[in-house]
């Protein structure tokens, strides 16, 4: 699995309240969530984002509430991948479970700026910054998680593995 896109860059501790504010949680319509994605942090995000773009952030991305609306809003905004120095654990689970590709790499987070173009190879965990001509190595997912990602989420995985 591969992705290529322009970078939107954010700081440490981007929480789920700014990814999708609670005032929009009275619906779970993905398009409506995507329209308000990151609104309190970057009001223009939903207008500027293009299919394939990549979010790069500092540590503890997605901290706070367990709302799956957060990765869902990002995925529906057609972001191809989120790279962060570290992820908050519920966001990490949710992203895998709904099939939003994510990678942890403190080096890539530090060495990337807004507007850079990145190419990402998920199987190898390789991140290439095409703008800066740099290569970063992230930990690829364990096989168990790769299977869930390949099935595009936990639900399909459960369907496929009826032994559950």
């Amino acid at each position: 699995m591969k992705a290529k896109g322009r970078v939107f860059k954010y700081k440490d501790n981007v929480d789920t309240d700014v990814i999708i504010p609670a005032r929009y949680l009275n619906t779970f319509d993905p398009q409506e969530l995507a329209a308000h994605c990151l609104e309190d942090l970057d009001p223009e995000f939903s207008q500027r984002v293009q299919a394939g773009d990549i979010i790069v952030a500092g540590k503890n991305f997605g901290c706070g509430s367990s709302r799956e609306h957060a990765p869902l809003a990002i995925k529906t905004a057609k972001v191809s991948c989120v790279i962060a120095a570290t992820f908050a654990r519920i966001f990490y689970r949710n992203a895998i479970n709904i099939g939003l590709p994510i990678l942890e790499s403190p080096e890539a987070a530090a060495g990337t700026e807004a507007g850079d173009e990145l190419e990402v190879d998920f199987d190898q965990g390789k991140i290439v910054n095409l703008t800066k001509g740099q290569v970063f190595q992230a930990q690829p997912f364990p096989e168990f998680m790769q299977k869930i990602m390949a099935a595009e989420g936990l639900i399909n995985h459960i369907k496929a593995e009826s032994k559950w």
Binding site: S66, R67, E68, P71, I90, R93, N94, N97, I98, G153, L154, I155, I158, W164
Partner: peptide, 16 residues
């Protein structure tokens, strides 16, 4: 522990 909605769905279906 807190999880997401997909985890809740999987948990409700399979108990695991």
């Amino acid at each position: 522990t807190g999880v997401g909605s997909t985890d809740m769905a999987a948990g409700m279906a399979t108990g695991r």
